[in-house]
């Protein structure tokens, strides 16, 4: 056939790959926003004193964490239309990604909230703050900053795992690469470049998060 690695070909497909990368980033960021909001809600739910709230939420979180993201993607993508909900694949994928990782972030929130000294709750009660104010003014401002490294790591994880969205026809980076391969019969360049692009974004990000971790470790 032709040479082993064709740089010309790489240049040709790069714009398309980058287009896929944009979709990847969009899905990642959208999913991340969902995950950090949902994570807090799930964490608060699990901490509820009302077992009718905490037990079902705990069960749902455990269930989602124990099952693969891919199967959840299939589930939402194929099952929702059965009940009349027709959403674009991108949306389904992003929401499923956010839901899946929301269960992971909820564990981070729980650990972070539990790490706040018990005395802070007592002082807040003694000063008669409203429950909402206790959370927003005193507990969460102390709980959340130490969580940044863990959340950052999950963001990076979501970026990498977003490749699974190809299974439900979302035209992110990996699907784009595979499609180029099936169209041109050249898989080497597209798939290698895709892998490279994932690496070039996630590795430096991981280093940044490590620096964040060191900074918070020093403070405590």
């Amino acid at each position: 056939m032709s040479e082993l690695w064709n740089w010309g070909f790489v240049l040709e497909i790069l714009p398309r790959l980058l287009g896929g990368l944009v979709v990847t980033v969009e899905a990642t960021l959208g999913g991340f926003v969902i995950a950090i909001v949902l994570g807090l809600l799930l964490a608060l739910g699990r901490r509820s004193e009302n077992p009718w709230i905490s037990q079902p939420i705990g069960a749902i979180v455990e269930f989602i964490r124990s099952t693969p993201l891919l199967v959840q993607l299939f589930f939402f993508f194929f099952v929702l239309p059965r009940y009349g909900i027709r959403l674009p694949a991108f949306l389904v994928g992003t929401v499923a990604l956010g839901l899946h990782y929301g269960t992971y972030t909820s564990e981070v929130y729980r650990a972070g909230i539990d790490a706040v000294d018990r005395g802070q709750w007592e002082a807040a009660t003694a000063l008669n703050f409203s429950p909402l104010r206790v959370w927003t003014g005193i507990i969460l401002p102390q709980a959340i900053p130490p969580m940044y490294p863990a959340l950052g790591n999950y963001l990076i994880g979501m970026f990498k795992e977003s490749a699974q969205l190809l299974a439900i026809t979302v035209t992110e980076l990996m699907l784009t690469a595979r499609v180029i391969g099936t169209e041109t019969f050249r898989f080497l360049e597209p798939i290698t470049m895709a892998g490279l692009l994932y690496f070039l974004i996630s590795y430096p990000s991981a280093l940044l998060v490590q620096r964040l971790e060191a900074r918070y470790a020093r403070r405590s």
């Binding site: 000294d117 002082a123 003694a126 000063l127 703050f129 104010r133 401002p141 102390q142």
Partner: peptide
């Protein structure tokens, strides 16, 4: 609201200055 308490381990809010520790409850409560 009629009772105030000072604790053995202080329990000051670490993310606030001394001034803000003292103003926070009057402002929000």
């Amino acid at each position: 609201g009629k009772i105030g308490m000072v604790f053995q381990h202080f329990y000051l809010f670490p993310h606030m200055t001394a001034l803000r520790n003292v103003t926070e409850a009057p402002i929000h409560v």
